[in-house]
């Protein structure tokens, strides 16, 4: 069963994916470590009574569902952009140094500045992500040809490794920071301050808009630089805009929820397997499939470990990897 490349079937597919996403979001509010019953959840949603049920529904489940939707969409889009920009199937949003930069900034802020509040973390993480992305891009843009895919990928890997080493050395020198970081670094939708979501939403929106604007140009770029130039595309501008969009999307995602690996790497491949190589569709599908995967994983994590919970970062790979491998086996893998 393969989706044809006709426009209508892509549209129907996207609608189905959206329906799936809505179902995941609903489950995420209904189901949790504690079974409250559908009626009680609805009641608490509509008539908050200030009791534990309301604390669980409004205080815990609604915010984490919101985080799942926003961060999932951001990571999916950032991954699609990163793979398109570097034309490398191994590229994930972290390759731009975004996660590494954010991690180092959080570790430094916790270890040396004594920042402990959640809202304190996110601005450090965001700043770290942005600085790392700028450094990677400037390094890759040096010399002839500007930021070519290979140079972006290698510069990203080098900077990421270097920053990662610095982070680890701080962590190893200090058990207290290590322990706090251990939990941040797994990446979680739970336990995040809802206010931070509202703070980063504008960044996500701008990032998504930028991504949508450059996706036609990315289609031209995938034909090769000369062809793209022939089609009247401004390659340098597309790359700069792409890097800015990735930084906004992935940076915001990492800042509020910690580095959630895998989603940004794998979902664009799934999207491509469904809708073909057109970047506009890959972007749209990634924006829907990624939060669906994230929320499904989060719900599963609450159920399997009852009365405990599993972190979403752990479940997402366990849930997504078999899907991904099956897709890779079935489809003719699209070279980027």
């Amino acid at each position: 069963m393969t989706w044809g490349s006709a426009l209508t079937s892509r549209r129907i597919g996207l609608l189905l994916a959206l329906a799936g996403l809505a179902a995941c979001a609903l489950l995420s509010i209904m189901v949790g470590s504690r079974w409250l019953g559908v009626g009680a959840v609805l009641d608490a949603l509509l008539h908050p009574a200030g009791d534990q049920t309301e604390a669980i529904v409004w205080g815990l489940r609604v915010p984490r569902t919101g985080f799942g939707l926003a961060v999932g969409a951001a990571l999916g889009m950032a991954g699609a952009l990163m793979q398109g920009l570097t034309r490398n199937p191994l590229a994930d949003p972290g390759l731009l140094g975004v996660s590494a930069g954010a991690s180092l900034a959080v570790v430094l802020a916790t270890g040396f500045l004594g920042v402990t509040s959640l809202s304190g973390y996110i601005w450090f993480a965001f700043a770290g992500a942005a600085v790392a992305a700028v450094v990677v891009f400037l390094l890759a843009a040096r010399g002839v040809g500007g930021a070519t895919p290979t140079k972006l990928a290698l510069a990203g890997a080098g900077v990421t490794a270097m920053i990662g080493s610095l982070t680890t050395s701080v962590l190893l020198a200090d058990a207290a920071t290590l322990d706090r970081y251990r939990f941040w670094s797994v990446g979680a939708l739970s336990g995040q301050d809802p206010a931070t979501l509202l703070q980063v939403l504008p960044f996500l929106a701008v990032g998504a808009l930028l991504a949508a604007m450059i996706s036609p140009g990315m289609n031209a770029l995938s034909l090769g630089e000369d062809a793209a130039r022939g089609l009247g595309q401004r390659i340098g501008l597309i790359r700069v805009a792409g890097v800015v969009a990735i930084t906004l999307l992935a940076g915001a995602g990492v800042a509020v929820c910690g580095p959630i690996a895998f989603v940004g790497l794998v979902v664009p491949h799934l999207a491509r397997a469904i809708c073909g190589p057109d970047h506009r569709w890959v972007l749209a599908y990634s924006a829907v499939l990624a939060p669906a995967l994230l929320l499904a994983a989060d719900v599963l994590g609450r159920l399997v470990a009852h009365p405990d919970e599993l972190h979403v970062g752990i479940v997402v790979a366990a849930l997504g990897a078999p899907f991904f491998i099956a897709f890779v086996r079935r489809s003719r893998v699209a070279e980027l």
């Binding site: 949790g32 470590s33 504690r34 534990q52 669980i56 815990l60 739970s190 336990g191 609450r302 009852h306 009365p307 405990d308 919970e309």
Partner: peptide, 11 residues
């Protein structure tokens, strides 16, 4: 330790 979801805070 026993680890619990925050939904179980008053367990």
């Amino acid at each position: 330790f026993e680890s619990l979801s925050w939904e179980q805070a008053d367990r």
